[in-house]
Nucleic acid binder design. Structure first.
Lengths: 335, 335
DNA sequence: TAAATTTAAGTAAACGTTTACGCATCCTAT
DNA sequence: ATAGGATGCGTAAACGTTTACTTAAATTTA
């Protein structure tokens, strides 16, 4: 096996207590002893055992990060931010792919509980009572990312979806559009669904425009495919629209592809604005104008919140992260 | 704090040894005792402490996964596969974003060593002597993903880059193209650079065609931007080409965007084939034909290899994962 | 029925740290 | 010269499990 503190103690003729003190820089030893010990550690390549440390300190220097789907651009941006913040504080992150599956999620929570993670970050998932109870029993800080809970008092980090949808729609209005449609994603989604629809309607109303039912199509989710089939449907319902607000970038790209197939030019014939600002937004043709969620920053902020809760033990306030319009070329100004 | 095995023992009037045996299903207790213990565990919501377990078993049920860049579609697909395989074996994965930075990588290895991870997965990075020595001192299995080492005997999981490049080029040839250019990515990259160039040249030669210097442009990396500036450059050098092989999907999408700006239609005027088959490949206009690396599967296979090495202690053989052409619409058949 | 075996448990050491407590030794101030 | 406080360090318990060794009781075997 590898060396232990006892080996170092034996070799340097001091007690394990002293070695421990030197390792942790706690003072209470002479310069000479310090050097002797440090030298031996270097020599043997000794590394403290996190198990033994954790047993005493009750800390793992590890946090758990749960995603419904790890392999999406959305998730990976957040992961990047979390990882970055964690790394700065010498903490590690364990990622879990819940696949939005209750049983699987519970199993992960169980696992994270056994591993005594110091905190948990919960991304884009609805908080069920089962999860919450488990989380509570773990007695560790939790912060929600890109989701929030109305039932349970958990701090969250997200953009204001309704407001951001308002901003997106308002951008279209400012560019002169009046007949605007929306491909809304999943209406049942309490976070990214209804609020974005509300923001859309509010922006329209705000300009004295009413929104017909025909101007919104609801899809199954927020995917490329949803945009692909959503646009033709929208166009059938509301043929005279000049612009569409897509509830996600993936939906927007799907819509652009559909438009292309229909011989509709973006933005000449139809303007499209997305939501998210994923890396793929700038790779499309034309590059997608979209309302940006700073995902990486959200990850970072959430992690920082989590760490501060670990330290102060207490509660934190939630954070609404500012969104903004990433202006590119998929929206045309009209008269 | 939370409950311990001692609490369970006290409550059920048995020894901690018996509780431990019940928890691990090792037998040596009566049905009545088992029920009593299990019931108490359920009642209190007791969960074993992974620190204490690890101290004895010397296992953490955790693996480390190192990426140069976690937030790329490439990485996240691999992560998905790894996570999946790990989950099946009740193991967790700690992700580390090395940013291709030596010092940062070493710090991670240090951290993973202290946490006593059971194995390490190293993605897309060149293995330096420093890393290797550290890895060796940890005495745990390591497998490389999408990279390999000529210097050190580490098992790897990857596609055959040269062969895949051959396949991509050959596909273009089969579609009738003869004047073919390549945007090669970073030539210095020993894995994704020169081998893909070699495969390209080999396929051309195989058909009796020689490759002019002018038919290849070398870029800095494998990014969208590299494709964006690479295509005009290639076209300047070799104006008569009818097809291009891009060394990555990102490069291919960049090239498509550049073509669009130049008023060149894909695939009517110019065919483009990519490399990777990332999710974005099917979202482009036109959908990108590309030679696919099954990244998720690679992650899964690598993790399985790692786990089998943990169990058998021994060496494993490397795996060359089969690639294939994902045929979409960016390549036109010509006469 | 006595011996042998099996079953169901308990005792205590070990894993590798940290830390409360204790004890010399040395210095400083009176 | 001596009380008092630093300074430098050691001893041993504690953290929560697992497991090698025991042991007593129950069961089987001869």
């Amino acid at each position: 096996m590898s060396y232990t503190i006892k080996d170092i103690a034996r070799i340097t003729n001091v007690s394990t207590a002293t070695v421990s003190r030197v390792i942790n820089g706690q003072g209470g030893y002479s310069k000479a002893t310090e050097e002797k010990v440090l030298h031996a550690i270097e020599e043997l390549g000794y590394r403290p055992n996190a198990f033994a440390r954790g047993l005493i300190s009750k800390k793992s220097d590890t946090v758990g990060l749960l995603f419904p789907e790890v392999s999406s651009q959305f998730s990976s941006k957040i992961l990047r931010g979390v990882e970055d913040a964690a790394h700065l504080l010498d903490s590690s992150v364990i990622v879990c792919n819940t696949a939005s599956h209750g049983q699987r999620t519970m199993k992960y929570l169980q696992l994270l509980a056994e591993k005594r993670v110091d905190g948990i970050l919960f991304v884009s998932e609805v908080m069920t009572e089962e999860y919450y109870r488990k989380l509570e029993s773990m007695k560790i800080p939790v912060v929600l990312i890109s989701t929030e809970s109305y039932q349970y008092p958990l701090p969250f980090v997200k953009v204001d979806d309704r407001h951001a949808a308002f901003t997106a729609t308002d951008y279209l209005l400012k560019m002169g559009h009046r007949k605007i449609g929306m491909i809304s994603g999943n209406k049942e989604d309490a976070i990214a669904g209804q609020p974005r629809i509300d923001g859309f309607i509010q922006a329209m109303n705000n300009k004295g425009l009413t929104v017909q039912d025909a101007n919104i199509v609801y899809s199954h989710g927020f995917s490329f495919h949803d945009g692909l089939i959503g646009l033709p449907k929208l166009l059938a319902q509301a043929p005279d629209i000049t612009a569409v607000f897509a509830a996600s970038d993936a939906v927007a790209l799907g819509a652009i592809s559909a438009a292309y197939k229909l011989g509709i030019k973006v933005p000449e014939d139809l303007s499209i604005i997305g939501f998210d600002d994923l890396p793929m937004a700038e790779m499309s043709i034309p590059p997608l104008t979209t309302v940006a969620q700073p995902l990486e920053e959200m990850g970072r902020v959430a992690a920082e919140l989590l760490f501060s809760m670990m330290k102060d033990g207490g509660k934190t306030e939630s954070r609404i992260i500012p969104h903004y319009v990433a202006e590119r070329e998929s929206v045309k100004k009209i008269l």
